[in-house]
Design a protein around this nucleic acid. Structure first.
Length: 217
DNA sequence: CTCCCGATAT
DNA sequence: ATATCAGGAG
């Protein structure tokens, strides 16, 4: 089965199961989403949302983050893990927005990835959710699922992004990313994927390999 | 490539 | 006990 057929069937399933999928990081503006996304590295969205509830009250603007005390900010975000790296990133991000972008979140990939703590994944979250731009978000779930199904043979996130851009309709790429992430949390999990109850196991290269391995004549 | 790191599920 | 969670920097 070719990739385009797989993507078509996958999207059909995703639309039926996860209609109107939205960003699961709680936010009210681009600055808040950027903050939450930086915190979301190797951490569940649910935990980020717990932390940001208070964080957004304490640091409502980029300037507030720019002026934040390092030790205090570490304490504020500690439950999300990697807190020293993330605190440094958030302060650097605040300073960058104030000094280079008039306190606003920029809307291009080129500018976004120059911000401390922001790589292509985080940049695509912002472009897709705040600017309505085509954006395939290659996070741990998208990476795992694209590889399992056989939509890519690459393991490098940027190459996976390039592979997916060719086969996902641009106007739907942002929502597609959300849907795949929900699918990854619920069914196609990293540790023990629920292949038996997976509605799209028929298009999955990894599932086919598992079946073949278990079936020994 | 390694390091960063707390919380949760398995 | 260990793998994993909306990764990025050096």
């Amino acid at each position: 089965m070719d990739k385009k057929t797989k993507v078509l069937r996958l999207m059909e399933f995703l639309d039926s199961r996860y209609a109107n999928a939205e960003c699961s990081l709680r936010h009210e503006n681009p600055f808040q989403l950027l903050t939450a996304t930086i915190l979301s590295a190797q951490c569940t969205d649910a935990r980020v949302n717990i932390v940001t509830e208070e964080l957004f009250r304490k640091y409502p603007t980029p300037k507030d983050l720019a002026d934040a005390d390092m030790e205090e900010l570490c304490g504020d975000i500690k439950p999300t893990g990697f807190f020293r790296n993330k605190a440094k990133s958030l302060i650097g991000m605040g300073k960058k927005l104030v000094s280079n972008h008039g306190g606003e979140v920029p809307g291009t990939m080129e500018e976004l990835i120059k911000i401390p703590g922001v790589g292509r994944k985080t940049a695509n979250v912002i472009l897709g959710n705040c600017f309505g731009r085509p954006a395939v978000v290659v996070d741990t779930h998208v990476k795992r699922i694209a590889f399992r199904i056989g939509l890519t043979g690459n393991t490098d996130p940027e190459k996976i992004e390039q592979d997916l851009i060719k086969i996902i309709p641009p106007e739907r790429s942002a929502e597609w990313s959300h849907q795949v992430i929900l699918f990854g949390r619920e069914i196609c999990t990293a540790r023990a994927p629920k292949c038996g109850e997976c509605p799209v196991n028929g298009i999955c290269a990894d599932y086919a390999a598992r079946i073949k391995k278990h079936f020994k004549p």
